[in-house]
Structures are given as structure tokens and as C-alpha cells.
Amino acid sequence: MTGISNDSVWITIQEMPLSLEEVSEFLRVEEAGGVDIFLGTTRRWTETEEKAAGGKTVRRETVLLEYECYKPMALKEMHRLVDEAFARWPVRRACLLHRIGEVSLREISVIAGVAAPHRADAFTACRYLIDTLKTRAPIWKKEHFVDGNARWVEGDSAPEPFSSPDTM
């Protein structure tokens, strides 16, 4: 299973660069008057407050991001998110594409796109796709810094109805 695609849904995880042009072509359909596309890209500078530095703001320089995933489960989760978006909003087309491996500065690691009759639903559904992907899809990024250091980014955990004993 490398990806899922039908007339209205396009989901993939790939090492090849992602194409904004193909996404735009896919999303612009006659049923939609609003198309919202989110791009996640590799950022060069990250400012963080470091406890070790007494809460001072530290600016780190990234040279590339490296992505790893549990591919069959990530695809399954991405498909589920898109299904949820279709169920909640009048979505006509949606795509969720993620790149894995090394992603250099300014390059695109993720594209979430939604086509809907009107812009409000396109914005809302697109935001839902990217926000929930970041908490549920088993994908991880490692930041490689200019000084040769690297670290796995500790991301957001989903709210956990599953693993909390008091909800069982």
C-alpha cells in the first residue's frame, strides 16, 4: 500500500519531492469555489527557550529535517482524517501528502489541501487535516542543526481516550 487515490481523495507518503502544481490541478474542480492549501516547509531558524540557559531564548539553525514513519499505519490514519473531513464539512476534494526522508530548507514536507463550495469550509477542513495529522499520524521528524547536532522533535500527543485507565 503506497497511497490511496480516487476521484476525490489523494493520500500519499513518498520520498520524492511534493508537487504543489499537481495538488492545485487536483483540487480545482467545478464543484468548488474555495480551495485551501497548507504547505509545511523546512524552516531555517528556530527560537526556543532553553531551561539550561536560564530561560534565555536560543536561536538554532537547521540545515535539514529528516522524516521517518510507520507507513501502513500512517496511511491508515491519514485516510481516516480525510474521511472525517468529508463527513463534517461539504468537502468536494481533499489531499494529504507527506514526504519522508531528508527535506532541505524551503522544501515541502507536507501538503494538506481541501476544495469546498465556499472558503470558510475549505479553511476549516484544511486546518483540521493538518492539525490532526500532527497529533495522530505516526510520523516523526529529526532536526539536523548547522553545528552537526541532531535531535528528534518531541511532538504533540493526541488526547488519549485510549490509554487513560479511568476512561476504560
Binding site: 509545511g40 522524516y67 514513519c69 510507520y70 499505519m73 500512517a74 507527506h98 514536507s109 507536507v110 493538518i130 495529522l133 500532527k134 497529533t135 495522530r136 499520524a137 505516526p138 510520523i139 516523526w140 521528524k141 528528534w152 522533535v153 518531541e154 511532538g155 504533540d156 500527543s157
Partner: peptide, 10 residues
């Protein structure tokens, strides 16, 4: 079985 540490895709 898979061990999923806090995810950081996107």
C-alpha cells in the same frame, strides 16, 4: 505491536 512516541509529522 508498535511503540509510538509523541509524533512530530508535518
Amino acid at each position: 505491536v508498535a511503540l509510538i512516541t509523541p509524533v512530530s509529522g508535518g
